[in-house]
Lab assay of single mutants.
Amino acid sequence: EPLWIRPDAPSRCTWQLGRPASESPHHHTAPAKSPKILPDILKKIGDTPMVRINKIGKKFGLKCELLAKCEFFNAGGSVKDRISLRMIEDAERDGTLKPGDTIIEPTSGNTGIGLALAAAVRGYRCIIVMPEKMSSEKVDVLRALGAEIVRTPTNARFDSPESHVGVAWRLKNEIPNSHILDQYRNASNPLAHYDTTADEILQQCDGKLDMLVASVGTGGTITGIARKLKEKCPGCRIIGVDPEGSILAEPEELNQTEQTTYEVEGIGYDFIPTVLDRTVVDKWFKSNDEEAFTFARMLIAQEGLLCGGSAGSTVAVAVKAAQELQEGQRCVVILPDSVRNYMTKFLSDRWMLQKGFLKEEDLTEKKPWWWHLRVQELGLSAPLTVLPTITCGHTIEILREKGFDQAPVVDEAGVILGMVTLGNMLSSLLAGKVQPSDQVGKVIYKQFKQIRLTDTLGRLSHILEMDHFALVVHEQIQYHSTGKSSQRQMVFGVVTAIDLLNFVAAQERDQK
């Protein structure tokens, strides 16, 4: 057995438009009618409502009807409940999964919650491996369901041993009777949507819809739904939504950006999952974080739909894509998950301010006199920076000697690579993860907040409520011999709460 199987392995699926269902090699399930009293909570997966979006479509000038398939009504709160249950049931049916076995899954959280929910009911041990950027709410729900959680670096490539995929496979090879159901490759993922989600949409719309818009992560949702719609409703256009920084969209030119990270969760990847059939997507749109969270908040405030950030991405694209539809036509959007997962993220004004998705003037509360002053007023001194090749031991000596707790790590040209902190280095040394002679590049981390000289002290204040420091950066445009230009970030300084307090105190003292 291989040590790991690539999540982007070539698909062996034989589905073709027009091929009889009787030739399918898979076990198919028909939607079942729910009894009045459910035998367990797993029976509350599927049969989610279709809700008309009344205000947002009109606000953006849509002539067509805009409908939302509300997947956050599933038992675990997301569309991923469907595939989690289906993968477990299919693994039980073919004898792969037996009582007492362990389920391991690399996930952005929602599939993990679905699997942990099913594992709690069915009696399996469950280990979820997820990147650090995923919300604390997801972690809390997983723990409450009895799952064990392993976190991995957000910026690790999918084929790196440190990625959530790599760590999951390492655990599988170490733990007896453990299984990775593997949402990236498992046919049960798109089949769950082909058999149930798509049929529900067709039934709820009486077979009449002209466009379907869905955000894409593993691709199982859009693949399964689109294949069924292509068979039953061939005139329906399928629109895929991919965040900026991901590479799922086609044509490839759409993916060209210097951005590699994004805040919206559960969609987009740096590889093409095996289950994603991009041939059934008629057109791709890219979405960005700001519009995703703005539209998610709009869905909550104006439509009462308590959905997550990827739902915002989907609707932001839908109001663009559906401009081509006329009166009497219908566009369906998939709202994948609930706001429950993001209470401390985009639902929080403070978080939105820190990330730059909300401006101070958007909030009406009274601010102190210094709130709208610029960061450049602080008069920061030149920063202490270190090269990635310097040793951890030497870096600790320098920081202690100069009285700093942290320093930016830059390359020879001064471009920011990340940050090192005294606390992080000492804990890594004590844990045996690094040696004093190791290069400081081994303990770089990139989960820090950046701020510009033109940003306000109010925004800085919000950042420092949650973080010990902020890195002050400025952009530099560099022209190359080819005539092309590129933008790079340079370090201007490091600012802490002490710097802000000293500035405010000094100004008030001078005024007296």
Rank of each mutant, 00 (worst) to 15 (best):
V375H: 05
L358C: 07
L380C: 08
R488D: 05
L399D: 02
L306I: 05
S287T: 12
P251Y: 06
L325D: 01
G268I: 01
K402T: 15
T454A: 02
E253R: 15
I390E: 08
Q439K: 10
F448H: 09
T385L: 12
V275M: 11
S313T: 12
V339M: 09
L358T: 05
L453F: 15
E324M: 13
C331Y: 00
L417F: 15
G423T: 06
I247N: 07
A322R: 03
Q450H: 09
T261M: 06
R488F: 15
M490F: 15
F404W: 11
T421A: 14
K286V: 01
L378C: 05
L248Y: 01
R297P: 01
E265Y: 01
I396D: 12
Q302T: 10
D337G: 04
Q406E: 12
S427H: 09
L422W: 07
C331G: 08
L387D: 10
Q302I: 03
P336E: 05
L248V: 02
S313L: 04
I477R: 12
E465Q: 15
E327Y: 08
L422Q: 04
I498Y: 14
E508N: 13
Q326S: 12
L471I: 12
A296T: 11
A249N: 04
L373W: 09
G266M: 00
L305Q: 01
K433C: 15
T344N: 03
H462F: 15
D438W: 09
E244A: 09
K449T: 02
Y445F: 11
Q439H: 14
V472L: 14
A413C: 14
V281N: 03
V281H: 00
L471Y: 09
V332Y: 00
T279L: 15
T344K: 08
Q435G: 12
A322L: 01
K446S: 15
K286N: 05
E244V: 10
G493Q: 08
K484F: 13
Q354L: 13
Y269K: 03
V494I: 11
W284V: 00
Q259L: 14
L306S: 06
C392V: 15
Y269C: 00
G483F: 14
A407L: 13
D362E: 13
G309P: 03
A497L: 02
F285V: 12
S427L: 11
Q447Y: 09
T257Q: 10
R400N: 12
F271S: 00
I463W: 02
